[in-house]
Design a protein around this nucleic acid. Structure first.
Length: 857
RNA sequence: GGGCGAUUAGCUCAGCUGGCUAGAGCGCUUCAUUGACGUUGAAGAGGUCGGGGAUUCGAAUUCCUCAUCGCCCACCA
């Protein structure tokens, strides 16, 4: 025997993956109907975490299933340089050595990160291989590869030429700790308790004198008043509109500022008068543009007061500055009051630093224009979403989308191919000679923009970049992708932008289906986080349970878009299932030995043969439908029960009585194929160990086809199962270990006597004229478990319970059929079924009642 | 403030377009026992599907409403 007693994943997984990879099993065939999918590229410096396990499991089920279906599967793997994320990790690494990014030149820092990523490469590749991902390594792409960068440059150039990318001085979300700007969706907002300060701004009278009167304004950030350029009131505000056009003296500064009218003011909030700080508040920025007001910057990129703020405040932190200003206002008698106030504050999603809106000159993509065709395509249902509701969320997002700031002030990334005239700051040109700091064009010197692209700008082009847009076989074959499988958390960052950029660049949607998985929560249902200490390490699970068990544990009972808790018990179940399959194979190996050619013929003889074929047929179809409909948990459940209950539980036992090697072999082949997408390592290990066919691999075998068999004979086996189950139950209930069966002449029982004896563990079975003991009530055959009358009476309680159940059942069915509307309106087939059920239930009730009467008589 | 989702067995969760006595895994109870597997086998207990209402012959499933939890979005200074 080649198969040892227990399946030990760690002994096989590495070799099996190598076998697959080296044989080129995962490479796209280039022929047949394509099934294409690009992998959301993990961070190049990432280590395996539980989220990968879910993502790769789902995608690999799809890839393996469609490969067995003989589709031309192109699952394209990749790695993301993950600009900001990676730089943050690297900076933490530097911090451990007591260094920071300021200790290095730009190039040194870039090189440092580059080798850091290289050093972590193995961990990265392990993710794919340990999880068994059947991706096509020959198509691997890294976001810093030349072809990716060049395509990104082409896209940027085209946007530039089309006037859809512009450079502008805007308010950006700036992390003063990391020293870079973010896109709007990257900012994490939290409701936080704060204070509302009510400050008096003295009105300036006609002759520039200060009057006794003042305007009361409310603010949560008093320190920003140093950068105020106006006070705004609503044009229709009866109590304040008379002040429009007048001036106030901005306390603590020498400046006088005007009172302007703007509809943005909400008269019901605060005092109805709003201080306008255009350089540090996005709304105020808009107001300032409308009223042509200047920008007065008072907060630096380091989060300190400075720039145009009065010199005495320079270099104070925001908090220090706020305290000092509040104190000074108090002294001047200009602070009316302070109230508690809860408000939303933006934070850096990495370090938690409060995001400062700062004025920066950066590159923006005109998303409003670009989103239009994307919204149309989505409305026309050109992309199907799973779960479906996410489509509308993307539409809503795109309808309200703001321009996308793609400049990042970090070094780890793709340099922006734009150069600025050293003599004329408004003169920018496109040029992809980014390896040079300065270039000469037309006798003028241009300096490269030091910024890099937002990572999502490159990964947003992934579906067409990885398929070799604009030319190439892969692009014509694999674009649009069949499906995009990714996490709900990056619906806007990634999915929406891929749709937008894909349509803009190629004129086509990037993928036909989008399947979104939820997050893996911790066992307690909470978000996993290092600070809560509830992070699950997949490596431990892999070591003890193996990859297949983890995969199945991730998929079981999970539905699209839903964030479910990690359940270790499901991984246990997965491991047990692997062992079950292993032992099924082990048993069959023991029985049929080397006669694997048995599987070449399929002769169905016994009732059980026909029955198991119908069960396998059902599974083949139902698993196909479920996987194609992205219902992975359902597909898995069918595989699990077909194999465990039907094949191992019933069929193998029946086969021991009526051996049929060809069906054993056929059945094993089918179950290995059915299970392969879910447990690739175990099934392939079995396939290889059995030397199923010379040099063949399960990974590139063919999905089983439904076979013809006799449905009536299959049904007869159902009846045998029914008899066996009831005998077992009755015997169990009475504590009989070897029951005796009595039956009235029956072809079914007679011709399957050995089978029933074995399955029900009978002592003996005899044909009698009149049965005695406990009558079997669920089968149409007349049979009983023979016991003395005394023992039978002990069963009375159980019988009465059964009687009650049947009475209820009969009543319910009669009521249903007595309902004229039901009989008239329900489908005929359903009504007929109900009638049959009633007949059966009535018969059973009669039997039970007769039996009870016989005991009590 | 808006939008979305969740609420089903002790726990973690399925249940597609309304139609058998609502399912799974784990856990629990009882029993079996050593030749495929104790990572096993057999039998079983356990749920008025969050509350209320509506539509329908029929609702876990559709609609309304309330409650609780969660997520996303939003410029309330």
């Amino acid at each position: 025997m080649n198969l040892p007693k227990n399946y030990e994943p760690s002994q096989y997984e590495k070799d099996i993956y190598q076998l697959w990879e080296q044989s080129g099993a995962f490479e796209a065939k280039g022929k047949g109907e394509p099934f294409s999918m690009v992998m959301p590229p993990p961070n190049a410096n990432a280590n395996l975490h539980i989220g990968h396990a879910l993502m790769f499991s789902i995608q690999d089920v799809l890839a393996r299933y469609y490969r067995l279906q003989d589709r031309d599967v192109a699952w394209i793997p990749g790695a993301d340089h993950a600009g900001f994320e990676t730089q943050v990790v690297y900076e933490k690494h530097l911090a451990k050595e007591g260094k920071s990014r300021f200790d290095y030149s730009r190039q040194e820092l870039y090189d440092g990160i580059y080798s850091f990523v290289q050093d972590n490469k193995q961990g990265f590749y392990d993710i794919f291989r340990t999880l068994g991902s059947s991706c096509d390594w020959s198509k691997f792409a890294f976001t810093l590869d030349d072809k990716v960068v060049n395509t990104a440059y082409e896209t940027f150039k085209r946007l530039w030429n089309d006037g859809l990318v512009y450079r502008g001085e805007r308010l950006v979300n700036f992390c003063t700790f990391h020293g870079t700007a973010f896109a709007d969706i990257e900012v994490e907002y939290k409701d936080e308790p704060g204070k509302m300060y009510f400050i008096k701004f003295p009105l300036v009278s006609e002759g520039d004198d200060l009057s006794e009167d003042f305007v009361l304004i409310a603010t949560t950030r008093p320190e920003t008043m140093l950068g105020d350029v106006a006070v705004a009131v609503h044009p229709d505000d009866e109590s304040l509109k008379h002040l429009i056009g007048r001036q106030v003296a901005l306390p603590l500064t020498e400046r006088h500022i005007s009172i302007v009218a703007d509809e943005m003011v909400d008269t019901s909030f605060g005092t109805g008068a709003v201080k306008i700080t255009p350089a540090h508040d996005p709304n105020d920025f808009e107001v300032a543009r409308r009223h042509d007001l200047p920008l007065v910057q008072v907060i630096t990129e380091y989060g300190l007061l400075g720039l145009e703020a009065p010199a005495r405040y320079h270099d104070l932190t925001i908090d220090e500055g706020r305290k000092r200003i509040v104190d000074e206002l108090e002294e001047l008698g200009l602070l009316e009051k302070i109230e508690e106030h809860s408000h939303r504050v933006g934070h850096c999603y990495k370090c938690g630093t409060i995001i400062q809106p700062l004025v920066r000159d950066q590159w923006f993509i005109d998303m409003k224009t670009l989103a239009k065709p994307a919204i149309e395509a989505l409305r026309a249902d050109k992309v199907r979403f799973y779960p479906t509701a996410k489509r509308d969320q993307v539409i809503t997002y795109l309808e309200n989308v703001k321009d996308w700031n793609i400049s990042r002030q970090i070094v780890w990334g793709v340099s922006i191919p734009a150069f600025q005239n050293t003599e004329d700051i408004d003169d920018w040109i496109f040029d992809d000679r980014v390896d040079q700091e300065t270039i000469q064009v037309d006798g003028k010197t241009y300096r490269r923009d030091p910024d890099v692209f937002d990572t999502w700008f490159t990964s947003g082009q992934w579906p067409f970049v990885t398929t070799g847009y604009p030319k190439g076989d892969d692009f014509s074959k694999y674009y649009p992708n069949s499906v995009m499988e990714t996490g709900v958390d990056i619906l806007y960052q990634w999915v929406a932008r891929m749709i937008v950029l894909g349509i803009y660049v190629t004129g086509e949607i990037p993928f036909r289906d989008v399947y979104l998985h939820g997050m893996v929560r911790a066992e307690d249902g909470k978000k996993m986080s290092k600070s809560l200490g509830n992070v699950i390490d997949p490596n431990e699970i892999l070591a003890t349970h193996g990859s297949d068990a983890l995969r199945m544990g991730m998929l079981a009972g999970r539905s699209a878009g839903y964030s479910a808790a990690f359940a270790p018990s499901k991984v246990d179940a997965g491991r047990n299932f692997c062992n079950k399959v292993w032992n099924i194979a082990r048993y069959i190996e023991g029985v049929i030995g080397d006669d694997y050619h048995a599987r070449k013929s399929s002769k169905f003889v016994s009732l059980a043969d026909h029955w198991i074929v119908t069960r396998l047929n059902h599974a083949i179809e139902s698993v196909s439908n479920d996987i194609e409909g992205y219902m992975f948990a359902e597909a898995y459940e069918t595989v699990y029960h077909t194999i465990w209950d039907d094949f191992a539980g019933w069929y193998l036992e029946a086969n021991k009585v009526e051996p049929n090697y060809s069906v054993l072999a056929y059945g094993l082949e089918v179950i290995l194929k059915l299970a392969h997408p879910f447990m690739p390592f175990t099934t392939e290990t079995i396939w290889q160990t059995l030397k199923w066919e010379n040099d063949s691999m399960l990974a590139v075998a063919h999905w089983p086809k439904v076979l013809k068999c006799d449905a009536d004979r299959a049904d007869s086996f159902e009846d045998i199962k029914c008899i066996v189950s009831e005998v077992r139950a009755v015997a169990k209930n009475l504590g009989i270990s070897k029951p005796i069966l009595q039956y009235q002449a029956s072809d079914l029982i007679e011709s399957n006597l050995e089978q029933i004896k074995k399955l029900a563990n009978l002592e003996s079975a005899t044909v009698v004229g009149e049965i005695s003991g406990i009558r079997l009530s669920k089968t149409n055959q007349v049979a009983s478990v023979f016991v003395t009358e005394e023992v039978a009476k002990g069963y009375l309680g159980k019988l009465e319970q059964r009687q009650t159940e049947e009475v209820l059942s009969v009543e319910r069915l009669r009521a249903r059929l007595g309902n004229k509307s039901y009989v008239d309106n329900a489908p005929q087939a359903l009504v007929a079924e109900t009638k049959q059920q009633l007949t059966d239930a009535e018969r059973r009730l009669e039997q039970i009642t007769t039996e009870i009467d016989s005991f009590t008589a």
